[in-house]
Design a protein around this nucleic acid. Sequence first.
DNA 1: CCTCAAAATGTAAACGTTTAGATTTTTTTG
DNA 2: CAAAAAAATCTAAACGTTTACATTTTGAGG
Lengths: 340, 340
Amino acid sequence: MESKPTIQDVANLANVSIATVSRVINNQGGVRKVTEERILKAIEELGYIRSAAARTMKLKETNTIGVIVPDIKNPFFPQVMAGIEQKAREKEYFTILSSTNESPKIEEEIVKNFIERGVDGVIITTANEEGDHLKLLEDQGIPVVAVDRSIKKLEVDTVLVDNKKGTYQAIQHLILQGHEKIAIICGPLNTTPGLDRYLGYQQALEDYKIALDERYVIQGDFGEQSGYRCTKKLFELEERPTAIFSSNNMMTIGCVKALEDLNWRLGSEVSFIGFDDVDIATFLNPKLSVVARPMNSIGEIAFLLLHERISLKGHLPKREYLLTPELKIRQSCRLVNPAL
Amino acid sequence: MESKPTIQDVANLANVSIATVSRVINNQGGVRKVTEERILKAIEELGYIRSAAARTMKLKETNTIGVIVPDIKNPFFPQVMAGIEQKAREKEYFTILSSTNESPKIEEEIVKNFIERGVDGVIITTANEEGDHLKLLEDQGIPVVAVDRSIKKLEVDTVLVDNKKGTYQAIQHLILQGHEKIAIICGPLNTTPGLDRYLGYQQALEDYKIALDERYVIQGDFGEQSGYRCTKKLFELEERPTAIFSSNNMMTIGCVKALEDLNWRLGSEVSFIGFDDVDIATFLNPKLSVVARPMNSIGEIAFLLLHERISLKGHLPKREYLLTPELKIRQSCRLVNPAL
DNA sequence: CCTCAAAATGTAAACGTTTAGATTTTTTTG
DNA sequence: CAAAAAAATCTAAACGTTTACATTTTGAGG
């Protein structure tokens, strides 16, 4: 366990200069076969692994991108991450992931840490869409791609799904099934997904001339707990909704738990559609209808956008991808029950 | 977007030497108040952020640990990760995560990359328990903690749950409910969890004098697909089992899907217990009985062990943590149906 | 066997920190 | 107020790469 071998050690052992070793390591050619073999053998023998730190210092690039998500336990993000990693690996980029727990303060620390480490770019679902705390990245000229939530104060590429449209279609579907008392469990309205999903809801009601009833608009925070709580509140209304729309996967889970506990019968007594597909969707009886997003693609696109920006240092205009989500109708939404 | 400011720029602006700036950055004291303030102002003004690369190069430490998991989409790992991150943050360590997709080849690449980056330690659930490809870490003197799967050829700290005991209890429970035709969907037997869970099954049958029936031992690969496939095979037996034990979460999901599709009625026609709690467990009707693990704790312990080793460079003996899983009986296992 | 171009290899500087040890400044003390 | 001690600050080297440029080696052609 001597101190790690350096390029110098390799050079000594192979009886060449460090420049030659460097050439071999980086496959730059212009080295005689025999020399190369001698060097390779020395590397093998010493167990030499080059130091990324030293390399970065000279080259000012790390071939690394940083990914920041608000909650690693929300399955949406690992899925997106898988898409990112896949594309990144193809381009020989390396990915580092950190989770903020929805805390802008932790997010800022992470950003700073990423900058210290010299990431070449960042993909982020920010905990605070205002984005003041992300100015640092801009200052350093580090490309950023926003995923799922946009960033107000930063001109960056963005990959979103059409939250409004997806929700609109879901609500429309419910309306066409005769529902008029449709509740929405909202996400935080200061986030893009939270707000846009609410706007889709609003729009659908408006288009179909259904008055928006404040009692049916209820505020969650994208967490499972809040889905549970909100559902309970809806249940306690003297005039219960006949359909519920939940704004994200975690709240859907809470909601379904509540329905179960309250013995509020899914499908028959209350129809349901949730944003984002969830594992449980097809296990429940009845199966859950959902607005599904192509999570893997979101990750892939995000990386591709970022990679473009990293390679073409030039100034590209801000780009925005808007993927269309898919309404998957299963059995949790039914014609409104005339008996109610 | 000039090139990034360095400590030298700060020093110039504040009219001091770089040594003094360094002292301020690292809170080493011995700097006059006024000087410190001048320096702080300069840092602020320039937006200076120190280069981790340069720092690492000098100090040979990164305050970073690497985490390697086989499948980031399996919710078990994000949960463990959350535990790791939490403790790591407390100790001012930073975490980088990579997923191997169960490929030892990718795993080796990742390891190499981690070493290049100079991680101070590694927490890993390896894709190949033989561990030959992990020798590199040992050579470099980088502490390693194995989680969930042990590593044969490496003397490293290990955090496991008592897979055998957990499974034993589950099978025992089924036996005490009168089941004799109990099937197990195994994980790969060349992994600790796969093998130990099988051994627990075997042991329980033996202790209760039930002959092991090869037809009921069926080989999966921890993937959802295989859970589905295996369940189907069991269904096709002329003498179907009256109970099924699934060796992990993903296979449980596949299994439940299959039961549904086959219209093989959970609880009444076939009892079920799965290893690892899953989101869907409490949504199903009947609710799934499971062997649950304290995932967050696993992560916390793993980090603590690693941290100890990083700080106390000395040679500690290999340590092994064996957490006890908890059998959660819900409604998916019932007294054997005498009608069958 | 000499010349010369091409190929291979070597030299040395630079990247941005930290820090031991040298030097300067400030404070204390008689 | 000078000398000594203490505190603050500075100088310079080192960390392990990459690479422009310099030097040496090789081999072809005469």
